[in-house]
């Protein structure tokens, strides 16, 4: 079996084509695959569709999705935020979106997570109570079950998923630490090819207790260990 361990981030992202759909894990920092994003920015793929909790942060901070958006690499965004929680916060995404130069689909966060989960679970569609009676349900089927209304939502799938995990073995089995987990496990399942950047070195098979595996290795294709001089979580303002 071909090794899943890549020596560099550049090698891990080298074949990503223009127009790809990519899921990015991360919530307010933890789990964000910052080193993979930096490599993808350097690689130059454009016309991307990105699926993520936000189209990057609205504040200053280490590299995230906003770098790809600012560089004009993103055509379409699927996210739970298409504006900051405070109206005074603006950045390039807001200008591009309002000018119609970038498309965006705004999805309630739980629906976003469940659509990704469904995409990686072989589910064709599902009904959720979230959004019934709001703008997000407009144009969608609403159906009543046991006296309650639900809206029909479709799964999300992707060509690639990028995530950050804490620990891995050579089979690709992953463990996350605390809220680094967030979208990682569900995105790894919903993408055809999953890339993981890792806090620590890759352990031999058997080093991770099978009962403690958070993402089984069959969902993980490429792994790169973040080097000591790589981008670390918590490097605020970097």
């Amino acid at each position: 079996m071909k090794s899943k361990v890549y020596e560099s981030f550049d090698a891990a992202v080298a074949d990503i084509a223009d127009g790809s759909t990519i899921m990015f894990s991360g919530f307010a920092g933890p789990g964000t695959p910052r080193n993979l994003i930096a490599a993808l920015l350097a690689q130059g793929a454009s016309g991307l569709t990105v699926i993520s909790n936000t189209p990057g942060s609205w504040g200053d901070g280490p590299i995230d999705l906003k770098a790809l958006i600012d560089a004009g690499r993103v055509r379409r965004v699927v996210a739970a935020f298409t504006a900051a929680t405070h109206p005074s916060m603006r950045r390039a995404f807001d200008e591009l979106y309002e000018a119609g130069e970038i498309e965006a689909e705004l999805v309630p966060q739980g629906t976003l997570a469940e659509r990704i989960r469904a995409g990686g679970a072989g589910i064709g569609a599902f009904y959720t109570p979230t959004g019934v009676g709001t703008e997000t349900a407009e144009g969608k089927e609403v159906r009543s079950f046991e006296g309650r209304d639900y809206v029909l939502e479709l799964p999300l799938r992707a060509d690639y998923a990028m995530l950050r995990a804490h620990r891995a073995d050579e089979m690709g089995n992953l463990q996350y630490v605390h809220t680094q987990r967030n979208f990682g496990p569900i995105m790894a399942r919903a993408a055809r090819t999953t890339l993981a950047e890792l806090d620590g070195p890759v352990a031999a098979a058997g080093e991770i207790d099978p009962n403690q595996v958070h993402t089984p290795g069959i969902f993980v294709d490429r792994m790169v260990v973040v080097p000591a001089d790589g981008i670390q979580e918590g490097a605020r303002g970097g």
């Binding site: 739970a80 298409t82 504006a83 705004l106 309630p108 109570p129």
Partner: peptide, 20 residues
Amino acid sequence: WKLGGRKGGGIGGAMDLAVG
């Protein structure tokens, strides 16, 4: 989640929390 006259909004988890 959305102010008047704006194209974008920030739903986050609010709609799920509100119904759940």
